[in-house]
């Protein structure tokens, strides 16, 4: 999909230079999953925000994760959809809970590799609880999306 410029042009992409979470996207573009953490009480939080909800500290840092987690849930969207997604429907959307902290959950897609299509895998064979790890799909110079592949693949 990264090679299809028309598709990428219409694809909804994040603003990657906003103050609070720019590091998330910088790390993703470098092939790392980083999550914001409190520098005082050490708890992770996602999405990023300026104050720790557990200890109210504003001291914060970014921590690179192992990139491993488990599928917490999934859905399989069908039309009508945004034009960018129509050629791929039905495709999978998954939620992954991270090994480091299962309450840190990320929405993504299960693919076969960084440039795998989101409709490539049979969505009906995806199971809650499956172990997965990160891959990074380059969508624009400043933006890579965090996606997931099955462990052992």
């Amino acid at each position: 999909m990264a090679g299809d410029e028309k598709m990428v042009q219409d694809w909804p992409l994040p603003d990657t230079v906003e103050d609070e979470d720019a590091p998330f996207w910088q790390h993703a573009n470098a092939g790392e999953l980083a999550i914001q953490a409190c520098a005082r009480c050490s708890r992770l939080r996602h999405p990023a925000r300026p104050m720790c909800p557990f200890c109210q500290s504003r001291e914060r840092e970014w921590r690179v994760m192992s990139g491993h987690g488990r599928i917490w849930s999934l859905t399989i969207p069908h039309p009508p959809l945004l034009p960018a997604f129509m050629p791929y429907a039905p495709y999978n959307v998954i939620v992954v809970e991270l090994d480091e902290d299962p309450t840190i959950r990320l929405v993504g897609n299960l693919v076969t590799g960084p440039d795998g299509r989101i409709d490539e895998l049979d969505p009906h064979e995806i199971m809650i609880g499956e172990p997965v790890h990160t891959v990074f799909t380059r969508m624009a110079d400043d933006c890579s999306l965090v996606r997931w592949v099955r462990d052992g693949s």
Partner: peptide, 11 residues
């Protein structure tokens, strides 16, 4: 929305 819509979680 940055963390959901790019993955096709739109509606």
């Amino acid at each position: 929305w940055k963390y959901t819509r790019p993955y096709g979680l739109v509606r």
